[in-house]
Write a protein that binds this DNA or RNA. Sequence first.
DNA 1: ATAAAATTGGCACACCCGTACCAATTTTCC
DNA 2: GGAAAATTGGTACGGGTGTGCCAATTTTAT
Lengths: 202, 202
Amino acid sequence: MNPHQDTPKDRPRPAHTPAASPAQARGRRRRATLLAAAVDLLTEGGFAAVTHRAVAQRANLPLSATTYYFASRDQLLAEAFAQLVEAELTTTRAWITDHGLTALPDQVATADRARQLGLWELYVHAGRDPVLQHIARRWTDGCVRIVADTLHLPETDTRVRLIYTTLTALWLEHVVEQRPLHQARDLLTHAVKTAENALPPP
Amino acid sequence: MNPHQDTPKDRPRPAHTPAASPAQARGRRRRATLLAAAVDLLTEGGFAAVTHRAVAQRANLPLSATTYYFASRDQLLAEAFAQLVEAELTTTRAWITDHGLTALPDQVATADRARQLGLWELYVHAGRDPVLQHIARRWTDGCVRIVADTLHLPETDTRVRLIYTTLTALWLEHVVEQRPLHQARDLLTHAVKTAENALPPP
DNA sequence: ATAAAATTGGCACACCCGTACCAATTTTCC
DNA sequence: GGAAAATTGGTACGGGTGTGCCAATTTTAT
């Protein structure tokens, strides 16, 4: 493949590409800056906007820093996705414990729409990329767990799953289509109510 | 904007870009071929794969045909999305009238996964593009209507909306995350049952 | 201090992109 | 027939992309 391949055993490491964690403190800071810039760009313009050059410029770092700290653009995107998911999960959990389940549509309305779009964009993209797929599953599992904790039910309970799906669909629909909010709120309260009244799973 | 702009009134039409419907039969066929090629590519590789060159090559037509029949790449994507949505709606409706609501997960499992991914990819992308947003709303409305017709209920009925959201979320989750199918099927039947037992909306 | 390793930053290659341009050809209309 | 309009297909421009390369510099380890 590579026509100028040196004997690989002579240089045990390529002396480049310091994997995930640079050895020096400044390097670790730089890497984090790049990642934050990638997340920003992802939320602003979708993942087409996350290019090496754009990330470097946003982070006030030279272009080559991006290829030095991240093996490829795909890896950069994957880490940005993971970070976004983690942040989203903690935000959502905090909101629900503060305001209750049925107030979730208001949190969605409050939150940065572009951010949500970037998140969902990457979620769908995960369908074509096994690495991202794992992160997507983590997101789903995290949301289900939040619902389960809130309702004091096990994660496997059908009612939990039912509420979660309703939540998800309403969320996505609102972010993409920007329908009036009251519909979503009404539907969600109705869903929670009927789920509470429903029999325990068979 | 354009430095070499002729007086626009002398040439009432640019002599290029025949809007949506070419005057000649062969042209209309060619346009349809290009559109079909775009849909194909969209399903295969996401909308990043829908480039002028790729579409032209897939349709066995010269590159310039794509710019002749479509004003821009955005328009091409919009029409491909609309076509995909229309096809999906008729397919789904047929499946449900044949096999019933709760068999929908099996239809999803049967159908071409890449196609579904392309559809959802464009759906999320519609959040950033007003033109696509209209098409996205059409899709949602179409799905809601199918559910309403199947249950012999008005579209505005809360139970219809509830089933629709459950359906949507399960569908997306399955397409992206490829979880085992039985969960989705069980959850859906449970949702339909509780919705049927629920009181009519207040 | 000195060698080795890690990091930096600038540059360039090869490729793909949307779209404009335009001379030739075909079709339509009178 | 012939003029006007529609279509065709080839080409080129300007720009953005991921990534490889490498000489300089800084940090670390001995």
